[in-house]
């Protein structure tokens, strides 16, 4: 599937996750965040950067790992991305939806 985000044609899956991280940039993140009703603050960017790094290092993401990351605790993570934080944050970060139950 393709979707026009911030004036660019971007490949996404049926849930709206980018399928090619190379197409991601900050303007795309801003649009995806707005769709999730989130205004990206410097704190959000820090976490998005962390998630992208973990993805690049092929570390599977889970809420438990987020809590142990030292970047953000679980409570703040839920405050920053209130609805389904891991799903929302990974979508904005342009990386795949984690397949974790924990």
């Amino acid at each position: 599937m393709e979707k026009t985000i911030a004036g660019k044609t971007i490949a996404v899956n049926e849930e709206g996750y980018l399928t090619d991280f190379k197409q991601w940039d900050k303007s795309i993140a801003d649009v995806l965040a707005a769709e999730a009703e989130i205004n990206l603050s410097p704190r959000h960017w820090e976490i998005l950067g962390y998630l992208q790094n973990e993805y690049k290092n092929e570390v599977p993401l889970s809420i438990r790992k987020i809590g142990k990351s030292g970047v953000v605790d679980i409570k703040e993570f839920y405050q920053l991305f209130p609805k389904a934080p891991l799903k929302t944050a990974t979508k904005i970060a342009g990386i795949p939806k984690p397949a974790s139950c924990i």
Partner: peptide, 17 residues
């Protein structure tokens, strides 16, 4: 499989609301 033990799991639940 990254499953926390009960005390840690309770903390995760609590922090998750």
């Amino acid at each position: 499989i990254d499953m926390p033990e009960v005390p840690e799991f309770l903390d995760i639940l609590s922090a998750s609301g």
